[in-house]
Computed example of a mutant assay.
Amino acid sequence: MSARILVVEDEEKLARLLADYLVAAGYVADCLGDGREVVPWVKAHVPDLIVLDLMLPGRDGLDLCREIRGFSSVPIIMATARAEEIDRLLGLELGADDYICKPYSPREVVARVKAVLRRLQPAPEGGPAARDGVVLDEAGFRVRAAAGEVELTAVEFHLFATLYREPGRIFSRGQLMDRIYADQRIVSDRTIDSHIKKLRKKLAEISPEVELIHSVYGAGYRYEPA
Rank of each mutant, 00 (worst) to 15 (best):
residue 92 L to Q: 12
residue 151 E to G: 12
residue 143 V to C: 12
residue 112 R to I: 03
residue 103 P to H: 04
residue 99 Y to G: 04
residue 127 G to D: 11
residue 122 P to A: 12
residue 116 V to H: 08
residue 143 V to T: 10
residue 78 M to I: 12
residue 130 A to P: 00
residue 86 I to F: 02
residue 141 F to S: 09
residue 87 D to L: 06
residue 150 V to C: 07
residue 117 L to W: 09
residue 124 P to M: 07
residue 121 Q to P: 01
residue 87 D to A: 15
residue 72 S to K: 04
residue 97 D to T: 05
residue 110 V to F: 08
residue 120 L to W: 03
residue 136 L to T: 01
residue 95 G to W: 09
residue 147 A to N: 11
residue 103 P to T: 02
residue 108 E to A: 14
residue 92 L to V: 14
residue 97 D to C: 06
residue 149 E to V: 01
residue 144 R to P: 03
residue 125 E to P: 00
residue 132 D to G: 02
residue 123 A to T: 07
residue 94 L to M: 11
residue 76 I to P: 00
residue 103 P to L: 04
residue 135 V to G: 02
residue 145 A to Y: 09
residue 103 P to N: 02
residue 146 A to L: 13
residue 87 D to E: 12
residue 150 V to D: 06
residue 111 A to K: 08
residue 151 E to F: 05
residue 116 V to Q: 13
residue 117 L to D: 04
residue 101 C to G: 07
residue 78 M to R: 04
residue 131 R to C: 02
residue 151 E to A: 15
residue 109 V to K: 02
residue 149 E to K: 09
residue 91 G to Y: 10
residue 82 R to S: 08
residue 150 V to N: 07
residue 134 V to M: 06
residue 87 D to M: 06
residue 78 M to V: 13
residue 147 A to E: 15
residue 79 A to L: 15
residue 82 R to M: 14
residue 145 A to K: 09
residue 123 A to S: 09
residue 143 V to Q: 10
residue 105 S to W: 03
residue 95 G to V: 10
residue 77 I to E: 02
residue 96 A to G: 12
residue 132 D to F: 14
residue 91 G to L: 06
residue 152 L to W: 10
residue 136 L to H: 05
residue 113 V to K: 00
residue 109 V to R: 02
residue 148 G to F: 11
